[in-house]
Every structure is written in structure tokens, then in C-alpha cells.
Design a protein around this nucleic acid. Structure first.
Lengths: 213, 213
DNA sequence: TAGATTGTTAATCGATTAACAATC
DNA sequence: TAGATTGTTAATCGATTAACAATC
């Protein structure tokens, strides 16, 4: 079963909505309900849920609990995946606090920083390590994912070391497009771009609105 | 001229690459060069640049300086847009430091926080304000964009107040899908989702690799 | 002029939407 | 049974890719 990138993103949103439903004691949910709660369309919901292999019933819709388990299997996977974070600035700290205990099989186990003053401190349960023996530590700890929260100019060097340490996926917050081997997956989150995009569309909508009136 | 969402994203990446080229004293650049430096294809680059209305020449490619000016006109727009940030946690601080003086016509002018201990402090040149009179302050300062960096449960209430204050675009870092009027643009950045996506694809690629061998 | 690159048009691809039979 | 929703197939839409004439 091939699951598209967009489907993965939406499953993650559905998962969160389902979590809230479960807390509220809701046992079943229809596609159109899930759609309206997650800014999607019923068709999309049905299609995405089908992709996970989970089936609903025409009478009761989808079982919340079963669906959560199925989505978790898809998103989290059967094996544990360990994450290393490089760059304990504001953004790095945000990621550490965000991710503490969020997912069972997905956790940040190592945090690195170049600054000697930060090294040795413990932040959100994770000790900050020096970048010196990074490759060895990554391998020893079986780290397979990396989060890059260093300033732009340092990003490529960090990526190279993470890859050398055996990392298979990267979450890159630097604005630098990274060069990595083909079999390494990179997800870029460009904060500057995001706000520029918001600015552009807000402006455009305001203009359209003005033209309508 | 209608510019697609993806084109806007890529223009932002091109803009950054062009900035580095300019610093290096490069005056002209070909589509295939820009493509390889920004993880794109020459066709995409040509198409996106055409959308901005800027023309290259077969002999020299695109003028770096002229292109930068054109992209800035598209991304930044002709008028100043002011941003308010709500939630001065780790992520909020990261955004404040990130954005300080990055763009001429795009700046975070107000920062709000619920915590009385944080209120009054000055962070990265911005004074932290209480949420009490938010709507009035937003209007007085002509704020048109909002950045939401509060925990999930508080996000909807914050969005409502920002919209009431006249904001036309939101950058939402909370995992809560926001309900806003149609004419307000919302860009969601879901950090948990991002890392789940990386985990999923890294796992998938590792598996594909194993199957090939 | 020759060669590479540009702007432009046509073909392909994938994702979304619409339509409909199957199911509880 | 009737009605709403599901899984499935066909049609639409948009973006990417490929092909090619125009240009320096």
C-alpha cells in the first residue's frame, strides 16, 4: 500500500482530532464529522482512512479507538525510532519541550550544541552533549532521525555529520537547502518562508475583498 | 497574474539562494544553476520566475539583482505588514529572534503573553504585553498578521481575539485546527506532524532499501 | 553562425472531486 | 424497508514534465 505525503500529513491531523474525541468519550465518528473537525472533505477522509486499511461501517461510521490504533501503527511504525537534535537555541528548546513524552516509539534521546557553556546542562530530561564525538554517539544509541535547529551557515556541516552517524531522516529548520544522499529523507520547515506566505495570501485576500466591494 | 501556493514557497527559497549569490558577487544565474542550488528543476524555476513577470536572457540567464528586487516585490508587497505574536514560550522567543530585522516591510511589532511574570519584559526589542486590551492594541498599531505560539487548548480563543482585532492572516503553530472567517488566511505548522512525517518516510526508505538488496 | 538557454505550447501525471452500487 | 454512509470507479482539475520554436 502506497500512502501519499499529503495523506500522511492529514492522518496526523486526524489522529489528534480522534484523540480529543476519545477523551470526550465519543466511540464512533462519521467521515463528514471528522472532515469538518479537521478542515478537510468527507471524500478525502474516507480515501485517507481506506489507505490505512481500516474499514468503517455505513451504520456507525468509524470506531474511534480502532482508528487511533491503526493510524498510530502507520505513523509511529512497529519499531522505536530515536531522534537526535542539534542546536539547543530557542527553537531547539521548543522542540525538546514539545516532544517530551509525546509519542511512545518516537523520542529525542540526544541533544548536541557547539557552545561549551550549554554542554553538560540537562534540558527537559535530555543532557546536552558536545558535538565532538557525534557520529559515534549516534551509532551507539541507534539514532535514526535528526532535527537541525542550528543557524543557516552551520546546517550543511551538521547534516553531513548526522548522515555519517547513520541517520535516515532529517527535519531541517535552517533556510539552507541541504545536500544529502538519496536515501535520506529531508523535511524542510522554513519559518521565514511560512510568514512570507501568510503575508502574501493575507494581502491577496484583502485585495480580492476590496475588488468585490 | 495568479501565483500558486507552491510557487510562493519556492520563490522564497530562490530568494534566499539569490541572496547568497549576490553576497558572493555573482551577477547572473541560469535556471539550471538556481535549480540545483534550491532542490528544484530548471523547468520549475523558469515557470516560477515567469510568474513574477521577470524575464531572463538566453545569453546571460537571469540578473541576480533584478530578480531579487522582483521577488521581494511579490513576497513582501508594496505596503508594510505588521505582525503580532501571541505566546512567548520557547517557540515564541525563537520566532521573535528569527524575525528581528529580517524583512523591511514585515516585522513583529507586538508580543502578548498570558503569564504576568513575562509581561513588561523586553525581548529582542519587543515589549511583552498583557492580553487584556489585545483587540484595541492590534487596531491602533495596524497589525494585519498574527503568529500563534500558545499551547493547543488556548489557540482557538487567541485566534478569535486576533481576528476581532482585524488580523487577516495567521501562522498557527498549535496542533488545533482553527475555525476562522473565510477571508482570513491560516497557515498551519504542526511540529509534531513534521517529525512524524520524517519518521514515516525514513522508515519507508530504509525498508525499500532493504528490499532492493 | 553555432550553441545554449529562454518563453511557450502540448502531453503526462497525480490528486481531488463527483457519481454510484454495496452495506448496515 | 428506507436512509444515510461506506467502498469503489470514472471524470475533473491542476501541476509537473517534455518538446520545440525564438532569442541572444
Amino acid at each position: 500500500m502506497r500512502i501519499s505525503e499529503k495523506t500522511i500529513e492529514r492522518l496526523s491531523v486526524f489522529r489528534r482530532v480522534l484523540g480529543r474525541l476519545q477523551e470526550s468519550g465519543v466511540q464512533n465518528v462519521y467521515s463528514h464529522e471528522l472532515a469538518s473537525m479537521s478542515h478537510s472533505s468527507p471524500e478525502i477522509v474516507r480515501r485517507d482512512l481506506m489507505a490505512t486499511g481500516y474499514s468503517g461501517s455505513p451504520a456507525k461510521g468509524y470506531e474511534v479507538l480502532g482508528l487511533i490504533e491503526t493510524i498510530d501503527t502507520v505513523l509511529d511504525g512497529p519499531v522505536e525510532q530515536r531522534i537526535a537534535l542539534v542546536g539547543v537555541g530557542n527553537l531547539g528548546r521548543a522542540m525538546l519541550s514539545f516532544f517530551r513524552g509525546k509519542r511512545q516509539r518516537l523520542s529525542i534521546v540526544l541533544a548536541f550544541d557547539l557552545n561549551p557553556e550549554k554542554v553538560g546542562r540537562v534540558l527537559f530530561g535530555t543532557q546536552i552533549l558536545p558535538v565532538d564525538g557525534m557520529e559515534t554517539l549516534l551509532k551507539e544509541n541507534g539514532v535514526s532521525l535528526g532535527v537541525i535547529t542550528v543557524p543557516g551557515p552551520a546546517a550543511q556541516a551538521v547534516a553531513d555529520r548526522l548522515v555519517a552517524g547513520g541517520v535516515q531522516g532529517l527535519l531541517n529548520f535552517s533556510p539552507t537547502p541541504l545536500r544529502v544522499p538519496r536515501d535520506v529523507y529531508v523535511e524542510d520547515i522554513d519559518l521565514t518562508m511560512a510568514i512570507e506566505k501568510v503575508a502574501f495570501y493575507a494581502r491577496q485576500r484583502a485585495r480580492n475583498k476590496g475588488e468585490e466591494a
